[in-house]
């Protein structure tokens, strides 16, 4: 990964650059080793202030910025957990990443990210 500065990416866990894509390969690179599935998830509930704003917004419609932010923060956390798992396996990239969201309880959502940990040249 000496020339990985080229792959201007993204998640740095303990100083290491991890390349994440959602295609089967890292374009322009060759995969040398597969480590199998890695995943990360998080379940978040929103707090009362946000919920109150959301109730108001439910009358007039429109974007719920608080929720958008909350969900993208949570998705970042799920991704970080996935990346940490990949790093623990000795991978330096995660390919074919998928996201999924499900609401598990009233007002709580699970964000789940999964992909295949690989090592590229």
């Amino acid at each position: 990964m000496e020339n990985s500065g080229e792959h201007s990416t993204v998640k740095t866990v303990s100083g290491q650059n991890i390349v994440i894509t959602n295609v089967e390969t890292i374009p322009g690179r060759k995969i040398v080793e597969h480590f199998g599935l890695v995943s990360g998830s998080t379940i978040r509930a929103k707090h009362i202030g946000r919920d109150l704003m959301a109730s108001l917004k439910n009358i007039v419609g429109g974007e719920l910025k608080g929720y958008t932010q909350l969900l993208s923060e949570s998705r970042d956390q799920a991704t970080r957990r996935m990346v940490r798992q990949a790093v623990d396996l000795g991978a330096n990239a995660v390919v074919n990443v998928r996201f999924s969201t499900s609401s598990v309880a009233q007002g709580a959502a699970e964000l789940y990210a999964y992909g295949t940990a690989v090592r590229v040249e």
């Binding site: 080229e6 792959h7 201007s8 990416t9 993204v10 390349v19 994440i20 894509t21 959602n22 295609v23 890292i26 374009p27 322009g28 959301a54 917004k57 439910n58 009358i59 007039v60 419609g61 429109g62 974007e63 719920l64 929720y67 958008t68 969900l71 993208s72 998705r75 990443v97 996201f99």
Partner: peptide, 25 residues
């Protein structure tokens, strides 16, 4: 499929965007 040859690619990364939108009464 990426419509460019491998040699031309400088970097690749995952990008995402999301929006939560509510309906009115």
């Amino acid at each position: 499929d990426i419509p460019y040859p491998n040699g031309e690619i400088r970097s690749s990364r995952l990008v995402e965007g999301s929006a939560v939108i509510s309906i009115d009464y």
